[in-house]
């Protein structure tokens, strides 16, 4: 199986602070990979390497290689806009724009001029995206409603739909359920299993049970280091590293 994302000796610095240390991992296509670890261990930073959102942080610097479909995304000639279209992100707090549901979904399409003023096509993609996040039936008559008036779960689904509309290949999820209640969390997790059929998913979570439920591979991070990476089942039943074992058995963290 060809991996979609491979990092080789990845180091990331914020000024003098080294946030990622020599990270080597490979993420398989159409699988869910979770990154777990205590707060401040660099898991969100790692996630933001894959769409180069860290570029926005002043003083951030990267060494090593990050290959996406075999191409190093940190080469100077990388087209950042294409990269981010291909590698989308779902954030910790649902963050729809305070405009209508419909306008939220087609935001990316307008940005990328993918619509050519064709209203039907816009509407078709909006429907497709909402169906993909299982929101169409709930919202098909409420497309003109203000997105910020939806429930938090609906908002987060909408954010995922907004992302799917630009046809990404990889979905990065940065603790996508941390603002949601357990029931909503469960439904989003089901959605992830559904999305996995078409997309490669990388999820950062501080919730170990969640990682166990949703992911095929798991990586455990500590102080910027990727301590262990492997099939989720093995990581949780037979961790190879003492620190991983201590973390997942809840001795600290």
């Amino acid at each position: 199986m060809e991996p979609v994302i491979v990092t080789k000796n990845l180091n990331l610095y914020y000024g003098h602070f080294q946030a990622l240390k020599d990270v080597c991992l490979s993420i398989g296509e159409r699988r869910v990979t979770s990154i777990i670890g205590p707060s401040g261990c660099g898991k969100s930073t790692l996630l933001r390497v894959f769409n180069r959102m860290n570029d926005l942080v002043e003083g951030a610097g990267v060494t090593g290689e990050v290959l996406l479909d075999g191409e190093d995304i940190y080469r100077p000639e990388t087209d950042l806009l294409r990269l981010r279209k291909k590698v989308g992100m779902v954030f910790q707090r649902p963050n729809p724009f305070p405009i209508s549901v419909f306008e939220n979904i087609v935001f990316g399409l307008r940005i990328h001029h993918l619509y050519r003023r064709n209203k039907e096509m816009l509407h078709g993609i909006a429907q497709e995206s909402l169906e993909a996040v299982l929101l169409w039936d709930e919202l098909k008559d409420k497309l003109g409603r203000l997105a910020t008036h939806l429930s938090l779960e609906q908002q987060q689904r909408l954010c995922i739909a907004r992302l799917l509309a630009v046809k990404p290949e990889v979905l990065l999820m940065d603790e996508p359920c941390s603002a949601l209640d357990p029931l909503s969390t469960g439904r989003i997790e089901e959605l992830m299993q559904e999305l996995k059929k078409n997309y490669t998913i990388v999820i950062v979570t501080h919730n170990m049970q969640q990682a166990g439920r949703v992911s095929d591979e798991t990586g455990f991070m500590l102080l910027g280091e990727l301590v262990e990476f492997g099939p989720t089942e093995r990581i949780f039943t037979a961790p190879g590293d003492k620190r991983t074992e201590e973390y997942i058995t809840g001795r600290w963290g």
Partner: peptide, 9 residues
Amino acid sequence: EVSLSLGAT
């Protein structure tokens, strides 16, 4: 952040 992450300039 959202806008940039969707590939906007």
